[in-house]
Write a protein that binds this DNA or RNA. Structure first.
Lengths: 280, 280
DNA sequence: CGCGAGCTTGATGCCGATCAATGCATGTGG
DNA sequence: CCACATGCATTGATCGGCATCAAGCTCGCG
């Protein structure tokens, strides 16, 4: 377990390489505390719990709409945290399913693979978002979840979640909304993959990303991508060269400033014009 | 309400044009009774109920795994049916959400639209499959559900479904599995749209269709498509001409026999070779 | 019979994939 | 500290799959 986690009620950004925490270039960073530590936390340990009741993410995460009085029961359920280092898998296709995970800090991608090796990134998950819903149907996970940076998740044992959902209608309702939202999101991605051209896809992707960062208190105009061009491409159904060319094009057009993975959105309105679609 | 429905415990195929019921060219048709009637049922009426307990679809539908003893409660909830004529909408984007629907007879497509008119078919639904899960998240539907033939659905009031789910853990679990299965299915479609070529997409589509028909007791080799080439294309991210060319190509290659919408699968193995991917 | 929706087929063109070379940042070992 | 390796990104040249445009065709139906 990590030495600094005991009793702490704020999120701790993982900054293993000493660079300033990303996505904080402008504005306050209410959800994170920049903190250096010599080495990343051990990857496998069950960690000390941090109460949902005092978590900064509770307005974005599972506890939305849960009455204060019911919080202790929720906290009792989410007794375990897990650290996943950059590049490692939280779960993989075929793993037995027994819990869903809430991202606490860090960043993930999920991907599915075809038999012949091609794969498709199905989503990127950031703090407050749930992972593992795919596993419910067959009681085995049907995709891989890969940490794109050193990350921590709250482990939510599914049996207990269902049991608690039978007691608290608000929790039940909210969990259903989360699953439904995932379905709606997927439909948006299908629209993107089925009918948009390369520039539109990238614009939709960037808009979605900035919206989610803004909801977490980060700047909506200055962001640091946590994923490679190839991962973006695999999500958007494009090759990495095409993604790169689109970034360059957007820079020429004055829509973005691109320096490696550091992106400044100069003209958000132009991105919106490009999209004009509801890719959630 | 329809005059012939009272107390009937078998499914009634809608055969408005008098042709033999589709997808029954080979083998028995355990789930349907071919029956002619002069005119289709009125589109808006609330209809007499038919018990889940005695429904042929119960092994594919919501009641999977529900104990016999609990069936009456389930039946009490699903008190209403609704008929939707070919071309009409069961619900549309923006409609308030208060129920999910189980397809009883007929065939639907769901679609989402971008602002500039392009749209994407997100799925085709046949007997026993659930519609409307997209509406839970915002309490409004986020897509259109269109009947591709005269159809009937069971109306499942969502409040009651949640309430009953709090009582019966099996129902809760099964409902969660259904939502999760939808997420997994969507990921399969994303893989298809993001990384497969035209022929692979069509092969995956046909395999999926035949599998679902087989699960319902129909032939897995002789099928009648309920949708146009354009609708297939809009689902697969292709233009209708491309879909048509792929059908012709498959016929040349001896994989299919194509006569309009009547398809015979001559070489299922060839389809599987083309796919080699897990598009559910 | 003739109309129209849906389907097929051909000719052409374009977007994005592919192949290939270079650039740039980070990290490593001598 | 530099030389080199490695992973990621950019950019150019060429290619190919699918879209687009454009005729005809088929079938069901008024």
């Amino acid at each position: 377990m990590v030495p600094h986690a005991r009793g702490v009620t704020i999120d701790l950004a993982q900054v293993p390489d000493g660079r300033p925490t990303e996505n904080s270039a402008a504005g306050p960073v209410p959800l994170r505390l920049i903190m250096k530590h010599a080495s990343p936390p051990p990857p496998t340990a069950a960690e000390l719990k941090v109460a949902c009741a005092s978590c900064n993410l509770r307005e974005l995460c599972l506890p939305v709409g849960i009455a204060e009085a019911d919080m202790p029961r929720l906290d009792a359920m989410i007794a375990q945290r897990r650290s996943v280092r950059r590049g490692e898998l939280l779960f993989r296709n075929g793993d037995p399913f027994d819990a869903v995970y809430a991202v606490r800090t860090g960043f993930f991608k999920t991907r599915v693979s075809s038999h012949d090796g091609r794969d498709q990134v199905t989503g990127f998950q950031m703090a407050g978002e749930l992972l593992g819903l795919d596993g419910i149907s067959t009681e085995r996970h049907s995709c891989d979840a890969v940490a794109l940076e050193d990350s921590q998740v709250c482990v939510i044992p599914f049996e207990q979640l269902e049991s608690l959902s039978r007691e608290f209608a608000e929790l039940q309702r909210h969990f259903h909304k989360i699953m439904s939202r995932e379905i709606v999101r997927d439909h948006g991605v299908m629209l993107l993959l089925g009918s948009m051209r390369a520039e539109e896809r990238l614009a939709a992707f960037l808009l979605n990303l900035t919206q989610r960062l803004e909801a977490r208190g980060f700047s909506g105009t200055a962001l640091v991508l946590r994923m490679t061009r190839e991962e973006i491409g695999t999500y958007l159904g494009l090759k990495l060269e095409t993604v790169s060319r689109c970034f360059s094009k957007f820079q020429e057009d004055g829509i973005l400033q691109v320096r490696q993975r550091q992106i400044s959105v100069l003209d958000p309105q132009a991105l919106r014009r490009l999209v004009s679609a509801a890719a959630a």
